Amino acid sequence: MVMTLLEWTGERIIPKLLKPTNGMLLEHIARYYFATPYIKGRVLDIACGTGYGCHMVAKDRKRELTELIAVDIDDDTIFYANREYHHQKITYQKADALDPALPEKLGLFDTILSFETIEHVADDLLFMDNLYRMLKPGGTLVLSSPFGRGRGKETSEPFHVHQLTPQEFEELFVRFSQVEIYYQRGPTFEKPRDGVRYFIGVAVCTK
């Protein structure tokens, strides 16, 4: 069963199959903890994976949260999330992040989470347009992505289409009224410091 789950999840995290000290697990969990203060109203987690993060924020922000829509493109992943991380305020459903009709299908949100997703899609600008259209005025987007050689360039990661440069990453958010860029190092987040090389960017954007 373990091999089967690993095969269909690719990079998706399954906490039950990993040691609590696993570095990738700690990084992924940290992103949801980082985003928790921004969770309110109607929330979208796009490419939610196995659902552990949705469940975390739903429990922690149950008073501020009215509804959490969690979408992923993989049927087995959605099935697993429904089985293992059910919550009365979470709806797991299949959806394609690059579907131009996605905003009409899902509606508007107060908060959108997108962690380690944009590097997996062929058209990152269409993806960003969908997110922008689904975010309410004054709403918050929290998005993370690893850095790499740039748009359209090969990456050593087998599941990544490409990895943006830090400059390309920042340029994704030009339409937003307010943008704060953070950098993740392991489970911690910080503003840039001279002489430090960062591998993961996290943007907090207000429409």
Rank of each mutant, 00 (worst) to 15 (best):
L106T: 04
G107S: 09
S114V: 00
K136P: 05
P146V: 11
Y132D: 09
R133V: 04
G152N: 08
P146Y: 03
R133Y: 05
L108V: 07
H162Y: 15
T155Q: 04
H160L: 02
K105N: 10
I112S: 01
T155A: 11
S145C: 14
N130V: 01
F147V: 13
E154F: 12
G150I: 06
L108E: 15
H162T: 14
F159I: 05
L125Q: 14
P158L: 05
L131N: 01
F147C: 13
H160E: 03
L113W: 00
S144E: 14
E154K: 15
I112F: 01
E154D: 11
F147E: 06
L135G: 08
A122T: 13
G138W: 10
K105Y: 05
T140R: 02
K153W: 04
T111P: 06
S144T: 14
L113E: 02
V161F: 10
V142T: 01
K153L: 15
K105V: 09
G107W: 04
I112A: 01
V161C: 08
L126V: 10
L141Y: 02
L131Y: 04
I112W: 00
R149D: 12
S114K: 00
L108K: 15
L143D: 04
F127G: 06
S156N: 11
M134Y: 05
D124R: 10
R151L: 15
E157T: 11
F115E: 12
H120L: 10
E116C: 06
M128S: 08
L141W: 01
H120P: 03
M134W: 06
L106G: 01
F115Y: 12
G148I: 09
D124Q: 13
D110S: 13
L126T: 10
G148A: 12
H120M: 06
L141A: 03
I112M: 02
Y132M: 05
L141P: 00
L131A: 08
L113Q: 00
G150A: 07
S145K: 03
P146K: 10
P146D: 07
K105A: 15
